[in-house]
Computed example of a mutant assay.
Amino acid sequence: MSKIISFISRKGGTGKTTNAIHLATTLHQLGKKVLLVETDTNYTLNTLRKMEVFQAKDGKAAFEILGSEDHQVAQELEKLKDSRKFDYIVVDSAGKTTDEGIKKLCLVSNAVVVPTSLTQNDLLVTYQTVTDLAPARELNSGLKIIILPNRIHSSTNIFTVRDNLKKLDAIILPVVVPQKNLFVNFSTVDAEKEYQPVAQAILNYLA
């Protein structure tokens, strides 16, 4: 049965899409069967994939990308999860996901990853997001709610990160995504090798 990892946040710009892509490409590079689902109706990742494949022209194998919508993605994931076609399904949820959409997505997910920087605005949104996810955890007892420290300056100590996030009722990853251009600029085909520790830290909670 597929493991579903959903990236959720109450606002855009927190790093959902970039981290979802980095995780999917890393898992694919590790030999896993991966599906990336985006619920933004613009389906920008599918467009990016087409451009990358056209530019590469080398026939490089890549994982599948599926477009969906907030109100129907949970039902689609239920069917995909049972199909055993994929090892992992990574979901990049839209920034304007509804309360009902969040609840349904959480009920079918094995893990929800909430990326956040240490800016006051992002932290406030993260607190609200985790609060909104709590009821779903009561219905889905196996759900892991994971905080991913994202865009963290190289001079910031990991203890500072934990201190800023300690009041959250969620798992705080012991690794961070640094504030580097290589993590901001992403590809749906080529994996960024420096992302492997982050991917492995997430997978550790799905074992």
Rank of each mutant, 00 (worst) to 15 (best):
L30E: 11
K85G: 06
L77C: 10
A61V: 09
L27C: 11
T47E: 13
D58Q: 07
K32D: 04
D58M: 07
A24Y: 07
K81W: 03
E69V: 13
T41S: 14
K79H: 13
I65F: 03
V53W: 03
Q72Y: 04
E78Q: 15
F63Y: 07
G67R: 01
D40G: 02
D87E: 10
K50V: 03
V73E: 02
M51T: 07
L45S: 05
Q55I: 11
I89M: 07
K57M: 14
F54R: 08
E69N: 12
Y88N: 02
A74R: 01
K32A: 09
K32N: 08
T41L: 11
L77W: 02
H71W: 08
L48Y: 10
V37G: 03
G31K: 11
A56T: 14
Y88I: 00
S68Q: 09
E69M: 13
K32M: 07
Q75H: 12
H28D: 06
L45D: 01
V73G: 04
K57V: 01
A62P: 06
D82V: 10
G59E: 07
R49I: 01
Q29M: 15
V34Y: 01
A24V: 08
L77Y: 04
A74G: 06
L35R: 00
A61P: 10
A61M: 14
F54K: 12
Q72A: 15
A61I: 10
E76Y: 07
L30C: 08
G59P: 05
Q75L: 12
N42Q: 15
G59V: 07
S83A: 13
V53C: 02
T39F: 00
D82Q: 12
S83Q: 13
K50D: 12
V90D: 01
S83N: 12
Q55R: 13
H28V: 01
K85M: 13
Y88R: 02
R49N: 10
Q72M: 14
E69P: 00
V53L: 11
K57G: 02
K81A: 06
K79N: 13
T39S: 04
A56K: 15
V53S: 04
Y88C: 04
E78A: 11
T44V: 13
K79L: 15
F63T: 02
Q55W: 11
L48H: 09
E64K: 13
T47V: 06
E64G: 05
T44F: 10
H71E: 13
D82C: 05
V34C: 07
D58I: 03
F86G: 03
T44S: 15
F63E: 03
K85D: 13
Y88H: 09
Q55M: 15
I89C: 03
G67W: 02
M51D: 04
Y43G: 05
A74D: 13
T47F: 07
L80Y: 04
N46C: 10
A24D: 11
D87N: 10
L35K: 01
T39R: 00
L66S: 09
N42D: 14
T47H: 03
L66Y: 09
R49C: 01
F54G: 02
D70T: 05
Q75N: 14
F54I: 09
A56Q: 14
L27G: 09
L77K: 06
H71Y: 14
D40P: 00
D87M: 03
Q72E: 15
F86H: 09
A24W: 07
A61Y: 07
V37T: 05
D82R: 09
E52N: 03
E52Q: 05
A62D: 11
V90K: 00
L35C: 09
H28N: 11
S68E: 05
D40Q: 00
K85R: 15
K60T: 15
